[in-house]
């Protein structure tokens, strides 16, 4: 693969049952591109957690995934409330999710830590009241 491929997804913030469709699509595309199963797994987990977060906290957003020879880059951008304290949000177990979200199996304060755990680079840019952009890279 010599040129960079990019896929863009619009994430619907209203429908929790559809959350994960974009991650599923990316997983299939990476498989078809012959990316290693270890890298696919890391991308799938990190992107899925991000996608869920967008639905839970930010009423959706967009995800751009670029694949180059060296890495896979995921950029998750939302226009949600922003993250007031990134250090706290990165602590395992810290969560601001509603009880209703927890009953669905998420909101245990593992989302952002999982995204960091399964990627090689992660950057969070957030502005309160304006939104959050998270950029993650998995090296190939």
């Amino acid at each position: 693969m010599s040129e960079q491929l990019t896929f863009t997804y619009s994430i619907d913030g209203d429908d929790f049952t559809r959350a994960g469709e974009a991650s599923s699509s990316v997983k299939n595309k990476l498989k078809m591109l012959g990316v290693s199963s270890e890298a696919i797994r890391k991308v799938a987990i990190a992107m899925y957690e991000g996608e869920i977060n967008m639905v839970i906290h930010a009423d959706g957003g967009t995800i751009d995934v670029s694949v180059s020879d060296d890495d896979i880059t995921m950029v998750l951008a939302d226009k949600g409330p922003g993250i007031p304290d990134i250090d706290k949000a990165m602590q395992e177990g810290y969560s601001t999710a509603r009880e209703e979200v927890r009953s669905l199996g998420f909101g245990a304060g593992m989302g952002l830590p999982n995204m960091k755990r399964f990627t090689d680079e992660m950057q969070i840019d957030t502005v309160l009241g304006e939104g959050t952009t998270i950029t993650m890279k998995v090296h190939l």
Partner: peptide, 15 residues
């Protein structure tokens, strides 16, 4: 014991 579509999605991500 959780029963919603995200259980299947989670399983999918992890093969």
């Amino acid at each position: 014991g959780l029963c919603n579509p995200q259980v299947v999605r989670t399983a999918e991500m992890l093969d």
